[in-house]
Amino acid sequence: MNEDEFRRLCDFIYRRTGMVFTEARRYYVERRVTERRSATNTASFAAYFARLRRDLDGEVEQFINAFTVNETYFFREEHQLRCLSGDLLARRIEARPAGRPLRIWSVPCSTGEEPYSIAIWLLENWPMVDAFEIEIVGSDIDTRVIEAARAGHFGRRALMRLSEPLIAKYFEPEGPESWRIIAELRNSIDFTTVNLVDAAGMRAHGVFDVIFCRNVLIYFDDASRRIAAENLYDNLMPGGFLCLGHSESMSRISPLFDVCRYADAIVYQRPREPRHG
C-alpha cells in the first residue's frame, strides 16, 4: 500500500467508523488489509477498497472485526478499569447525593466478562470500595449471551489476563480448563436484555454514573449510532462518564458529550449543565 492508498483508506475508515489512524500505525493497518485481501481472495488494494466501499458480503463489518479484537476476556482494556478506579469514581462521588448507590452499566456485556471484571477490579483496586454501595448491571441484545453471563462459566482463554491468586479468589474450578465465577459475584450483578436504539428499553434501566459501551457503535450505521448516543446520554447522570472502545470516538458521532482526557484513558462525559449552540 502506498502513501496515497493509505490516506484514502484512512479517510474511508474515519468517515465510516470514527477510527483514526496516523502514519505511525500504518504497519498495523497494512497487516489488517493484507489479512482481509487474503480472506477475500482480492488481487489488488484497489479491488479490495472497491469491495470495502460497496460493503460486498458485509466486508465493512469483517474489516472492523480485523481491527478490534473481537473476543472478550477478563480485564480487557485494563487501562479503562484503572481510569475507573483512579479518576472517574472520585469525580462521581463528589457529585453523588448521600445514600444513592454508585451505578455502573456494561452494555453490551456479551457473556459477562466485562461486568464481572469491573466488579473484581473495584474489589481489588479501589480503596473506597467498602464505603459505598455499588450496583453493576450487564446488558446485551442477545438473550443467549445473557443466560451465559448469568451462569458464569468460563474457559482458560477468558481468564488469561487474571493472576492465579485472583482466579483462586473469585472462581471455582469445574474441570482442568473451566471455572465458574463464585456465587457471591454472580448474585451481585444484574443481567438484562436491551437494544441500544430502543429508547424505552434503555430508559427502563435508569441512570448511571459510568457506562461502558465498547466496540459496538462502530458496527452501527450513522442514523442508529446517533440514536444510540442520544439514549446513552439519557442513561447518564449529569457529569456521568461514558467509556468507549479504544478505537472508537464519540466526537465523530455526537456533540452531546465532553471529551475528558485522563492519564489512563480518554472518556466522554455528559455535561453537568446544558450547553447552548
Binding site: 438484562t192 424505552a200 428499553g201
Partner: peptide, 17 residues
C-alpha cells in the same frame, strides 16, 4: 461485599405500547 444487586434493575426492556 459492597456490591449490591439493583433493586429496580431487571426491568424488562420494552418499547412503548
Amino acid at each position: 461485599m459492597p456490591l449490591i444487586r439493583p433493586k429496580a434493575a431487571g426491568a424488562p426492556a420494552s418499547s412503548p405500547d
